[in-house]
C-alpha cells in the first residue's frame, strides 16, 4: 500500500469509524507506523479537521432569537390548545327536548358577545390573510396615525381607511407604504387602532419601536399601547423589513 492509498483508506476509516477494520485498514495502519511523512500528514489533517469543527460552530445566534420564536409560536399554541367543544349530539342527549328552548337564547347571547368581542394575535393572523387593497373603503373618519409617524417623509398613508371584518367585528385599517432606500425595498402595511378593552391584554410595549416583532406566513406585526388604545402595525414583509421600519420611526422621533 502506497502513501496515497493509505491516506485514502485512513480517511474512509475516520468517516466510518464504527465499521469493523478489514485487511485494508490493517495495511493502512502498518503503512502509517512505518511512514513518517504520512503520520505527520494524518496528524496535521486531524488538526485541520478540529479547526474546521470549531469554525463551523462559530455562528453567533441573534440576540432575542428564541424569544421571537416563542412569540411567533405562542398565538398558534393558544389556538391549537383550546379544548375541543363538547359535541352537540352529546349535549342534546343530556338536555333532551328542553334544549330547543335554548336555541333563541343562544342566538341572543351570540349577538351580545359579538358586540364586545376581544381580539388577540390569532385575530391578527386572520386579518393578515386578507388583501387590504380589496377591502371596502370605510365611511368612518380616518384613523389617527401613531405618535411620530405622520411627520416621516418616508411613510405615505392612504386617504381613507379600509374596513375588514374579523369575528364579526368591523376593523378599520389605515394602509401605508414605507419607501425604500438604497439598502431596502419599499414595503406596504396597515395600522389598526383599538380601544384597550378590545384587545385580550395590555401590551407590554409602550411604543412601536419597543414592540416585539411577531411572525406569520403573511408577514409580521407589532402590537403596542398608546394612551387608551392598542395600535397594531401589520407589514407585508419579513422581520427585517419591520425592523427597518422600527428603526426609521425611532430615528424620526429622535430627530423631532
Amino acid at each position: 500500500m502506497d502513501c496515497q492509498q493509505a491516506r485514502a483508506q485512513l480517511e474512509l476509516e475516520r468517516l466510518g469509524k464504527d465499521a469493523a477494520p478489514g485487511s485494508d485498514a490493517l495495511a493502512a495502519g502498518r503503512h502509517l507506523s512505518e511512514c513518517d511523512v504520512c503520520r505527520g500528514a494524518v496528524a496535521s489533517d486531524r488538526q485541520v479537521d478540529s479547526r474546521i469543527t470549531r469554525a463551523m460552530l462559530d455562528v453567533p445566534v441573534p440576540i432575542g432569537f428564541a424569544d421571537r420564536l416563542h412569540a411567533a409560536i405562542g398565538p398558534a399554541l393558544v389556538v391549537a390548545e383550546t379544548p375541543v367543544a363538547v359535541p352537540r349530539r352529546h349535549l342534546l342527549r343530556h338536555l333532551g327536548w328542553g334544549s330547543l328552548a335554548l336555541v333563541p337564547m343562544l342566538a341572543i347571547g351570540t349577538l351580545l358577545v359579538s358586540q364586545s368581542v376581544v381580539l388577540n394575535d390569532a385575530s391578527i393572523r386572520e386579518l393578515g390573510k386578507l388583501d387590504p387593497s380589496l377591502l371596502p373603503v370605510g365611511s368612518s373618519p380616518g384613523i389617527a396615525a401613531p405618535a411620530g409617524w405622520s411627520t416621516l417623509r418616508a411613510i405615505r398613508f392612504a386617504d381613507a381607511p379600509r374596513v375588514a371584518t374579523v369575528n364579526r367585528v368591523e376593523i378599520p385599517l389605515l394602509m401605508f407604504s414605507a419607501l425604500g432606500d438604497r439598502r431596502s425595498a419599499s414595503c406596504t402595511g396597515y395600522l389598526v387602532r383599538l380601544p384597550l378593552s378590545q384587545w385580550h391584554k395590555v401590551p407590554d410595549a409602550d411604543s412601536f419601536s419597543r414592540g416585539i416583532i411577531q411572525y406569520a406566513a403573511f408577514g409580521t406585526w407589532v402590537v403596542w399601547r398608546e394612551g387608551d388604545n392598542v395600535v397594531i402595525c401589520v407589514l407585508q414583509g419579513d422581520a427585517h423589513a419591520m425592523q427597518r421600519l422600527q428603526d426609521l420611526v425611532a430615528a424620526g422621533r429622535q430627530l423631532t
Partner: peptide, 10 residues
C-alpha cells in the same frame, strides 16, 4: 491527498 492541505488556519 496533498500536503498543501496541512496547517490551514480557518
Amino acid at each position: 491527498t496533498t500536503d498543501a492541505a496541512l496547517d490551514v488556519p480557518v
